[in-house]
Design a protein around this nucleic acid. Structure first.
Lengths: 136, 136
DNA sequence: ATAGCTGCAAATGCTTTGCAAGGCC
DNA sequence: GGCCTTGCAAAGCATTTGCAGCTAT
């Protein structure tokens, strides 16, 4: 059957983020957070959720991806100008980008260690460090 | 005066890249390659070249930026989905990105050393490593 | 009841493309 | 002359926004 059951765990997570567990949001959350680490584009997630039989507009997918990102449940990874990936792994880690397939792959944390950070520009603090190894 | 003199050095560089030294291409080259390291967007460069009194269309700026990139004279840096920077420094180095101003800044090579690269996915080779430290 | 969500379609912003006219070799 | 370049305007694409109607609490 195609109904999405309202999993307590996900609902609690959404409540903690002050996001109402609507039908659409629940469906998206299930796809994102119950399948392990994922790297999805808005289009892909939209296709997924439609395939699961839940009607959600693409605009709503975008809105939710950004709300999740704002709440710290997702991390946005920019690879191309013109395409954003959303990563369900919000811990500090880096990526391989496969130019041929357009896929993102996590780099195991221990496999790439950054040396000491450089001296930062005056009056700034680090918001995030992005490392992308482009392979083909 | 506003005329751009056809600098031999630049012309040779263009010839080596099999790009005809047209008036527009020369003007763009001068702005890009005679001012030290620069990080420009297509829009910025277009504004610069217009300010220098040479009429160049935005499409031509894009075309040339890509031709230069293809010829290895520039390097494209993706920071945002929806905005591309072109870097005149084509040597291996990393960047600070100032979120507030939208500016890119080179990190001195010695200031950030990458540890050993991780094991690559099967049948792949590294095309490029991008490191962006986002500060605010 | 009401603040928050959603869907749709239109708008946006950057970038690319098609094609006729122009310029370099 | 022939081929590369350019300019313009139109098209493309991913993403955002405005707003009327819906829904969770």
């Amino acid at each position: 059957m195609n109904t999405i059951r309202p999993y307590t765990q996900i609902i609690d997570r959404l409540k903690a983020a002050k996001l109402r567990p609507t039908r659409q949001r629940l469906a998206l959350s299930k796809l994102l957070f119950e399948r392990g680490d994922r790297h999805v584009t808005a289009e892909q997630l939209h296709a997924d959720v439609m395939a699961a039989g839940i009607k959600v507009s693409l605009a709503t997918v975008y809105n939710n991806l950004h709300q999740f990102t704002g709440a710290g449940l997702l991390r946005e990874v920019v690879v191309d100008s013109g395409r954003s990936y959303f990563d369900t792994n919000t811990t500090s880690h880096f990526h391989f980008f496969h130019e041929a397939s357009g896929e993102l792959e996590d780099i195991p944390v221990d496999d790439l260690v950054l040396g000491a950070l450089p001296k930062l520009p005056k009056n700034t603090s680090v918001k995030r460090v992005d490392v992308i190894i482009r392979v083909r």
